[in-house]
Simulated scan of single mutants.
Amino acid sequence: MAGGLFASGALTALFAMALAPPSTSPDVPTTPPSPAERIRVEVATVNGSGCPNGTVAVAAAPDNSAFTVTYSDYLASAGDQSDPVDFRKNCQLSLIVHAPVDYTYAIASVDYRGYASLQSGVSGMEKASYYFQGSPETKSESHRWRGPYADNWQATDTKPWEDLDWAPCGAKRNLNVNTELRVLIGGSDPGRTSFMTMDSTDTKVSSVYRLAWKQCPSS
C-alpha cells in the first residue's frame, strides 16, 4: 500500500514539473475550472517517419489541465553518413480525448522540447499544427535555431482566449496533431553530422499540450 501511494505521489510530482510554465513563456489565458471528472487521452492512429509504431505515448495530467506526448525515436539528421531523407522527420497523430459530454476543450498552449546538435552554418526547425477532425487545419507555427548549437531546445506556441479553436459540443471529433523537424546543412561541412530530436535525450520531458475548458450550452 505504501509503495502504491509513493508511486502515485511520484507521478503527480512528475506532471507538476513538466507542466510548470517556463519563465520566458507568455502567460496562458485564465480559464474556467476544468471538469472534475478525469479525462483520458489515447492514440487512434500514428503516421510519419518521426514516430514509428510503439514509439509514442500520451498521458493526461491528474488535474485535466494538460496532456503530454512523449516520443522515443523522433530524430532528424543531416551530414556525414545520414540518409538523404533523414533531414526531415514528421509525425501525424490522431488523438481521442475522452472528456465529459457537457464540456468542450481547446489547446491553449503547447510546449515542445528536444535536443539539438547543429554544426556551424546548419539550421534546425520545429514546425507544428493541430486541428479537430472535420475542421480546417490551423495555421502552422515554426521555430528555428542556427549552429553552432549543442543544447536542449524549447518552443512554446500560445493562443489568446478569443482565438482558441474549440472541440464541437455534442460531437466526437479526434484531435489531429502534426509536428515536423528539419535539419538543413546549407553551406556547412557535409562531412560532419548535425541532428535534432523531439524530446530531451533522456526522454524525461514531454511535449505538453495545455488545455482550456468551458461548459457546453445546455440543450
Rank of each mutant, 00 (worst) to 15 (best):
Y74N: 10
A78D: 11
G79A: 06
D80M: 00
D80V: 00
S82Y: 07
S82A: 15
D83L: 12
V85Q: 13
V85W: 11
D86C: 02
F87M: 02
F87H: 09
R88S: 06
K89P: 00
K89M: 10
N90V: 08
N90P: 00
Q92V: 10
S94K: 13
S94M: 08
I96V: 12
V97R: 04
H98K: 09
A99G: 00
A99C: 00
V101F: 06
D102W: 01
D102Q: 02
D102M: 00
Y103A: 04
Y103G: 01
Y105F: 15
Y105D: 01
S109L: 05
Y112W: 10
Y115C: 01
Y115M: 02
S117T: 00
S117L: 08
S117Q: 10
S120L: 03
S120R: 10
S120A: 14
G121D: 03
V122Q: 02
S123V: 13
S123Y: 03
M125T: 14
K127H: 12
K127P: 00
A128M: 12
S129N: 14
S129R: 11
Y130L: 06
Y131E: 04
F132Q: 02
F132S: 01
Q133M: 08
Q133W: 07
G134Y: 11
G134I: 10
P136S: 15
P136F: 11
P136E: 14
T138D: 13
T138W: 09
T138M: 15
T138L: 15
K139F: 11
K139T: 15
K139C: 04
S140P: 07
S140L: 09
S140N: 10
S140G: 06
E141Y: 13
W145P: 03
W145V: 09
W145M: 12
R146T: 14
P148K: 07
P148L: 12
Y149M: 06
D151T: 03
N152T: 12
N152D: 15
W153E: 09
Q154D: 10
Q154L: 11
